[in-house]
Design a binder for these strands. Structure first.
Lengths: 196, 196
DNA sequence: CTGGATGTATACCGGTCTGTCTACTTTGGT
DNA sequence: ACCAAAGTAGACAGACCGGTATACATCCAG
């Protein structure tokens, strides 16, 4: 057993526990005491690793950003490049919504949209961090859109983002896990109109 | 001066004040004391009209549901029926995002999406109330979609809802008020493919 | 003209919030 | 073997939470 890392893992333990609680119950609704109890860690330890709750929130957003983009990138790479890759996004969403992919379970909406809902001011630190995440995901789609239609890649990827966000909201708010399939159908027709 | 209604208006005053605060800062972030201070009302008065904060939240959601649907309905009715009405939705969104319509200012995202983000469990009372609102808005679109393509009205309205939700999220999270125009462009092409 | 509904102001209750502090233990690299 | 880093448990501070209680004022309908 790696005792050495056991110590250093406390930080990650706190982050992943905080993420699970924030994601499920919302950030304001979860107190620091809940986090440390669930993580099985002393309060002092939390404040050893993080200056404040704000810092923990920032770390949680960074953690999820990494996890989510790594997951989506992997799902896309398994598909054929170009159109296949872009449609694979919606298959990935489908598995996410239906909690069929362990790597990204469970589903309680988009953590970043949810966080922006709690910090509605676009100038807010956390809101900005969510924007940065969405920008990176958008750029990911853009790279693949480039394979489909280089001249209109910006347009195409932007429109696909709309379908993606719409699907996530619909799946969460309406508890409609089939939303990804509707969005995929729309995406297919969109791709046809962009085919070169 | 109508002193009689002055009394009865306190309830509405509380609701509209609570809405403004909840909408801007999130529900969990706003305390009951903030609400009564902003409304200029005694705490006893709040608890005379509402059993609890939960009850105030419910009333706030009902108030916004009414306000929003009345506003959107009016905006749609001003446009020619059928396609015009459906496209008018996106013009309305455009004015909302850009805070050009006093009747619906300001813009901090969709109150119902935001509330679902704070109460992620679809079984939660408030989450369900948000679903009900979205269902009513969806039915509103459905009625107009029926004028465009009676056989495929369900499909069409559902797809327009995706564009609408996508636009709202994009406008809020990315602070991109032009999102409504992108969505309108997509909607136009969608309507072409549904034209009878 | 009186009584009940609605309002005011303010103190209070028990609990929880973030964050600090004390005092002690475990661990691992040098 | 030793010391700094990282950990533990838990009390504490001061603010704020939702909600109740007390005591009194205003208003209007029967």
């Amino acid at each position: 057993m790696s005792q050495a890392s056991n110590r250093l893992e406390k930080r990650d333990q706190l982050i992943s526990t905080a993420f699970s609680l924030f994601y499920r119950y919302g950030i304001h609704a979860v107190g620091i005491n809940q986090v440390i109890d669930a993580a099985g860690v002393a309060k002092r330890t939390l404040y050893h690793h993080f200056e404040s709750k704000e810092a923990l929130i920032a770390a949680t957003l960074a953690y999820r950003d990494q996890q989510f983009r790594t997951w989506l990138e992997a799902r896309i790479e398994q598909a054929p490049p170009g159109e296949g890759a872009l449609l694979a996004v919606f298959d990935a969403l489908n598995d996410w919504f239906n909690e069929r992919d362990e790597a990204i379970m469970p589903f309680h909406g988009c953590f970043f949209i949810n966080t922006c809902a709690e910090y509605t001011d676009p100038q807010n630190v956390h809101h900005k961090q969510c924007q940065a995440h969405k920008r990176l995901v958008g750029e990911m789609l853009l790279r693949h859109a480039y394979q489909v239609n280089a001249e209109r890649a910006d347009e195409l990827s932007q429109e696909l983002v709309f379908l993606k966000e719409g699907a996530i909201v619909q799946a969460h708010v309406m508890a409609a896990p089939q939303a990804a399939l509707v969005a995929k159908g729309m995406a297919k027709r969109l791709l046809q109109s962009y085919a070169t």
